[in-house]
Simulated scan of single mutants.
Amino acid sequence: MSASFSHKLPGEHVYDGSLFFGFSPPDTLDAVKDFEVRDDDIFIVTYPKAGTTWMQELVWLVMNDGNIEAAKQKPVYFRSAFLEFKDEILNEIGIELANPMPSPRVLKSHLQVKWMPRQIHQKNCKIVVMFRNPKDLCVSYYHFYKSSSSLGNFTGDWPEFLRMFLCGHVDHGSWFDFTRRGGNMRNNYNVKIVFFEFFLRSLSKPPPKYIGFAFLNKSLSLDVVDRITRHCSFESMRRNPMTNHDDVYSINADISPLLRKGTVGDWKNYFTVNQNEDFDRIYQERLGDIDIPFVYQL
Rank of each mutant, 00 (worst) to 15 (best):
F176A: 02
G22H: 03
Q122K: 14
I44W: 09
Y249R: 04
N276P: 10
W267T: 14
K8Y: 12
N91S: 15
L203S: 02
L216D: 00
L287V: 06
A3H: 03
Q122N: 11
Q56K: 07
D254F: 04
L29T: 03
G262L: 13
F279Y: 06
R79W: 07
F271H: 12
L9T: 05
R260I: 03
Y15N: 04
S4R: 10
S6Y: 08
V14E: 11
D16G: 07
N124E: 15
I292T: 13
P208S: 08
T229E: 10
I292D: 04
D30T: 09
R38I: 01
R132L: 10
A50K: 03
D226I: 05
P207E: 06
L19V: 00
D247Y: 09
V62W: 14
R201C: 01
E235W: 08
H231N: 13
L107M: 03
Y145I: 06
P207S: 02
H172W: 15
R38A: 15
G173L: 09
K192N: 05
Q73H: 07
Q73K: 14
R132M: 12
N190T: 06
S24F: 02
V37S: 03
R38M: 14
E277H: 14
T155D: 08
Y15I: 07
F213I: 01
G11Q: 11
N274I: 05
P134E: 02
F161V: 06
Y296H: 10
K33H: 15
L166S: 01
F5L: 07
D254A: 14
A98E: 00
W60M: 04
T155M: 08
L111K: 01
F20C: 00
